[in-house]
Nucleic acid binder design. Structure first.
Length: 573
RNA sequence: CGGGGUGUGGCGCAGUCCGGUAGCGCAUCUGCUUUGGGAGCAGAGGGUCGUGAGUUCAAAUCCCACCACCCCGACCA
């Protein structure tokens, strides 16, 4: 390809509203253009990257035995009503109406459609297992789209769905997809980690996210540097403390703490560590119109994990208590509540594992402006129920027992999930087994954010000059930059021949034949992240040499033409 | 949904307080010079100043309403 025949335009300044580096660079390099909030046009240069990502995914999905299909973006409301998600999905689901007044949605995902396809055509265990995938645009009406293509409203996604006779076979395919995803992200040259993810109400170990490691990621990951343990922070288990609770030593005493409500404030006011404070959080569950209060106890420096709370029997539908509710139940404002003196009939008290080993702690006195010091479980209040309620913190022991947890941030680019029979049941997707018994299929689903990968790759590969793409997904592999294409016949013919030879040899090459000064050409080729550059100039040609420079290499080297070919062949192999 | 901010050629911005012919840099076009790290000079084109309704002799500027976009927050007591 020649620049003069291609279509791309770079900017010296990025639009002011672009926040993260990938968004700024993608706009500056002319990979994408914003059309509306969270909606982008993929310009030819960006589309080449997107297509390369897509191709790697397609090759590996095919290799893993999945079969490609293409479903519609516009889906009838009936299917969503049948699965129950017409009501449940909420405002992220873009609903539209046709000229006859019939309801449709623009698909944010395709469980309904794929399950409908399979239930119509798959009747026997002989046709199973079956894994279908597509690469297609999705639309999710995000509250706040941001970060360019990393959280867009319309985005390209690879979604795969597998159907099985029995759970064991689902687990086999899940491992198969896990391996395929690992190959995919490895081939793309990304630094990533598979992390255990929340499985919602389904439970079990059936969900992993594939996270590209990046500071600007939106997800917090807890991992163990000494093992392969990694989990979403929200999911990581906080182990019970290794040491037992020390004996009570101090007497219970009520102290005035006027205006001090947050744990950190109280700690500072009393001149103690937040670890000595018992944090009490009031939540409410409504059952049959009855409000039930629960007090959740945490060590002062720990934070509550709402997902873990939602998994406690009886608290599935909890919400935080309002100020008025706290006043009504405990007779004091929030900020001064605690477990001491609370009627067990009135409120369930559940302590985090770490909180249960605290002694002589500080907690709210259930009187405005006062806290207790020297409080102890068993002596001053009943022993609470115990549960894992908190988010893990850096330095906590790894749940696999192999070291301490560290934190990093990641961008979720893939998610695999054992759906089990949720959708198959709702849509009555069944098969006949060997005995002629009708059985509901087990399902898995496997997603990859194709367009998000491009953003994640830029987020991971950039420097002060612009994007540094991994060769596997760069818009072009090699840039041929002539010095004086329109001035020197020698340079022109050498650059043309080099371009043709490289193309013939199978390289993906861009000859920058624009009539610009060398500085502009260099700057643009670097900005758009082409990994390899060959400069053709009279200087080198007179010695029969070409100049090679890798995008990330500090210096250029002069090489004989055939040596350049050999080097490229080696680097791009 | 709550709070804050911004809307002026393709991009980045000034002008708004204090009303009086809409400006700068980049980009684009023409010419000359230049040519191994985003050139120089001379000239040119391009803007209903987010939309609407007001005040005024006169509105980018003042008033009101609306829209769009961006940022932060959404209950850890």
């Amino acid at each position: 390809m020649r620049s003069s025949r291609f279509f791309f335009k770079t900017l010296k300044e990025a639009p002011a509203d672009a926040e993260v580096v990938s968004q700024r660079l993608m706009l500056r390099a002319g990979l994408i253009k914003r059309v509306a909030a969270g909606i982008y046009t993929w310009m030819p240069l960006g589309l080449r990257v997107l297509r390369k990502v897509e191709t790697i995914i397609r090759e590996e999905m095919n290799r893993a035995g999945a079969v490609e299909i293409l479903m519609p973006a516009v889906q009838p409301a009936e299917l969503w009503q049948e699965s129950g998600r017409w009501e449940k999905y909420g405002p992220e689901l873009l609903r539209i109406r046709d000229r006859h007044g019939r309801d449709f949605v623009i698909g944010p995902t395709h469980e309904e459609v794929i399950t409908d396809v399979v239930r119509r055509d798959v009747k026997s265990y002989r046709q199973l297992p079956l894994t279908l995938y597509q690469i297609q645009n999705k639309f999710r009406d995000e509250i706040r789209p941001r970060f360019g293509v990393m959280r867009g409203r319309e985005f390209l996604m690879k979604d795969a769905y597998s159907f099985h006779a029995g759970f064991a076979d689902l687990e086999r395919e899940y491992r198969n997809m896990y391996a395929a995803y690992t190959r995919i992200f490895t081939r793309m040259g990304l630094s990533f980690r598979a992390v255990a993810a929340d499985t919602g109400s389904i439970g079990g170990t059936g969900s992993h996210e594939f996270q590209v490691i990046a500071e600007t990621g939106e997800d917090d990951i807890a991992y163990c540097p000494d093992s392969d343990y990694a989990a979403n922070v929200e999911l990581a288990e906080a182990l019970p403390p290794a040491t037992p609770r020390p004996a009570a030593a101090a007497a219970l005493e009520r102290v005035a703490t006027p205006g001090q409500t947050a744990c950190a404030e109280v700690a500072a006011y009393l001149g103690i560590s937040p670890t000595q404070i018992l944090k009490t959080i009031a939540v409410v569950c409504e059952r049959d119109g009855e409000k039930e209060l629960a007090l959740l106890l945490l060590r002062g420096d720990h934070t509550l994990n709402e997902i873990k709370v939602g998994k406690i029997a009886g608290l599935e539908t909890f919400r935080f208590a309002s100020e008025a509710e706290i006043e009504a139940f405990l007779g004091c404002p929030p900020g001064y509540i605690g477990p001491v003196g609370v009627d067990p009939q009135k409120a369930r008290v559940i302590a985090d594992r770490s909180a249960t080993v605290m002694c002589d702690f500080v907690c709210g006195a259930n009187v405005a402006g006062f806290h207790f010091t020297g409080a102890n479980f068993g002596r001053d209040c009943p022993e609470p129920e115990v549960a894992d309620l908190r988010n893990v913190a850096p330095g906590d022991p790894s749940p696999d027992g192999k070291g301490k947890l560290a934190f990093c941030r990641g961008i979720e680019v893939g998610h695999i999930f054992q759906l089990r029979t949720t959708y198959a049941e709702a849509l009555d997707c069944a098969y006949l087994d060997e005995q002629g018994q009708r059985r509901i299929m087990e399902m898995g689903c496997y997603g990859i954010g194709v367009s998000r990968i491009v953003g994640a790759a830029v987020e991971q590969g950039n420097d002060e000059k612009g994007i540094v793409f991994p060769a596997a997904i760069a818009p072009f592999e090699v840039a041929v930059v002539p010095m004086g294409y329109f001035k020197s016949e020698m340079v022109k013919s050498a650059a043309d021949r080099l371009h043709d030879d490289l193309v013939a040899a199978g390289f993906d090459v861009l000859l920058d034949d624009r009539d610009e000064r060398p500085g502009s050409l260099f700057a643009d080729m670097e900005l758009i992240g082409i990994p390899h550059r060959i400069v053709v100039g009279e200087r080198g040609l007179k010695e029969g040499k070409l100049e090679y420079k890798g995008r990330a290499d500090p210096v250029a080297t002069l090489l004989a033409a055939d040596a350049v070919f050999a080097l490229l062949a080696e680097k791009l192999r």
